[in-house]
């Protein structure tokens, strides 16, 4: 249990007669990059909402960063970071102001915020951009800043929602290097995407179909099991049934 960042057992969510998430069971290890895949409407979003404490499960149990999804949702929120493809950055605020704002939201001390702001700007090489509004940043910079802001409170787990859609191959790789670095430092990364080539970058992936986890393993194991060359083909076989 101690080595797991996330443990879910029989986690279920029903809306009336409709079972959106049907008894999913899985574990994510500490420091692991875990890909959570599924078609639109497969139940990914509902599952994640339960994991991050935004939706109460109908049945089953789960702990996230060591905290219970029924009883300790506030503790969960303090210990996770979240970055979506849409970026939660304020376009009209400067780079510094965005970091300040999120540091404040997460209750960091003034001193800590100043430290964090300096280290993020240093690490991302954003010195010349520090006082520019985020709206003027190139997409790749926004993406990296967005990741840094999601990590400003040193969360144990970072949830990434389709992090690299539409960026050029170099930017995308710079982003994945950030993820590998974070994972190397013991931070757990939970990635949701429906772009299967992104899945190839994950240590392990699960694939949801109609509310259930239908496959779980390393990308290589899944490709071997389904006797195909790409995660795209694994997914298509599973989703088409």
């Amino acid at each position: 249990m101690e080595n797991n960042a996330i443990t879910a057992i029989g986690l279920t969510k029903k809306f009336g007669d409709f079972t959106a998430v049907n008894a999913i069971t899985f574990e994510v290890k500490k420091g692991e990059i875990f890909g959570f895949l599924g078609a639109n409407g497969a139940g990914k979003t509902t599952a994640i909402k339960m994991l991050i404490g935004l939706s109460r499960p109908t049945n089953g149990q789960a702990t996230v960063a060591g905290f219970d999804v029924f009883k300790q949702t506030n503790r969960i929120k303090e210990n996770i970071g979240y970055m979506s493809q849409k970026f939660s950055l304020y376009e009209d605020l400067t780079v510094k102001q965005n970091i300040n704002f999120y540091g404040g939201i997460y209750g960091l001390s003034r001193k800590k915020i100043i430290e964090k702001t300096a280290s993020i700007i240093e690490n991302l090489n954003l010195r010349s951009y520090a006082n520019k509004v985020v709206g003027d940043l190139p997409l790749g910079w926004k993406q990296r800043l967005s990741f840094a802001v999601a990590s400003v409170h040193d969360p144990k787990i970072i949830f990434l929602d389709e992090p690299t859609g539409g960026v050029d191959p170099a930017t995308r790789r710079q982003f994945w290097e950030m993820i590998y670095e974070a994972s190397n430092n013991g931070i757990t990364i939970f990635v949701t995407t429906h772009y299967m080539d992104e899945a190839e970058y994950c240590h392990r992936v699960s694939i949801m179909v109609d509310g259930k986890i239908e496959a779980l393993g390393t990308p290589r194991e899944l490709k071997e099991r389904f006797k195909v060359n790409s995660m795209d083909d694994v997914f298509i076989q599973l989703a088409r049934g």
Binding site: A39, N40, G165, G166, H194, M196, D232, F235, A239, R240
Partner: peptide
């Protein structure tokens, strides 16, 4: 095909 899943893309 931006924003649609792998099955729809195929």
């Amino acid at each position: 095909t931006t924003g649609v899943d792998a099955v729809s893309r195929a």
